[in-house]
């Protein structure tokens, strides 16, 4: 058991080894058609660092809402792959959403959780995923059958293929290295993000 100052009592798995920015950049390069929703904080920076695009919707708040917001998009846009890129803390706050998504089984919705096991924005306090919770196991228990931990880069190509195939809802819990990276800040004007997202789908702002 860890005795680090911020440690809680739960079991502490070894930290992940995947470098998050390069993983996200490669994944997005392999899924160029995907509509992307990010959770707040580091996952938004990772996605923006990979290159801004109108199909990216960055959340700066609404913690716990990324995956279920993407469910609304996925139902409305069944011919597009919808990809959530979020963190362990954000998904833990929206854990019930995994049950909601499991009940709906949207074929075109993929959730990628960049799991560093801590709350990176607020002082690196250990999250539940480094104290015993497996979000992949939670997702499977909610009926998201294709849910697994990703511990090395070798899984990336197959993951991208499944995202692009739209053949079933999935969750990938990607064990990333707990690095403290420079922040790369995406636009935070929500109205702008909304309007450009709709425009790229061919819709008016209202």
């Amino acid at each position: 058991m860890s005795t680090a100052p911020n440690a809680g009592p739960g079991a502490a798995p070894k930290p992940g080894t995947i470098e998050r920015r390069s993983f996200v950049a490669k994944l997005l390069a392999a899924c160029p058609q995907a509509l992307v929703v990010t959770g707040l904080g580091s996952p938004a920076y990772d996605v923006f660092a990979a290159g801004d695009r109108d199909e990216n919707f960055y959340l700066w708040g609404a913690m716990g809402g990324a995956a279920v917001m993407a469910l609304g998009i996925a139902i409305a846009q069944p011919t597009r792959s919808v990809l959530v890129i979020t963190g362990d803390g954000e998904q833990l706050m929206g854990m019930g959403a995994l049950a909601t998504i499991g009940a709906q089984q949207p074929n075109n919705l993929s959730i990628v959780v960049l799991d560093n096991g801590l709350y990176g924005e607020t002082g690196a306090q250990r999250s539940h995923t480094s104290q015993g919770t497996s979000l992949a196991a939670v997702a499977r228990a909610c009926g998201i059958a294709d849910a697994a931990e990703v511990t090395d880069l070798g899984a990336l190509d197959a993951l991208a293929m499944r995202i692009n195939a739209r053949a079933g809802c999935l969750l990938a819990q990607v064990r990333v290295r707990p690095d403290d990276l420079p922040r790369v800040l995406p636009p935070r004007d929500g109205t702008y993000l909304k309007n450009r997202f709709r425009a790229v789908l061919g819709m008016a702002s209202m």
Binding site: G72, I73, Q77, G96, M203
Partner: peptide, 18 residues
């Protein structure tokens, strides 16, 4: 939904998707 806040986020997502 498991909790109402999910519905708020989902409704916003629906509008993003048209």
């Amino acid at each position: 939904m498991t909790t109402e806040e999910e519905g708020v986020a989902m409704a916003c997502g629906a509008w993003l998707g048209g």
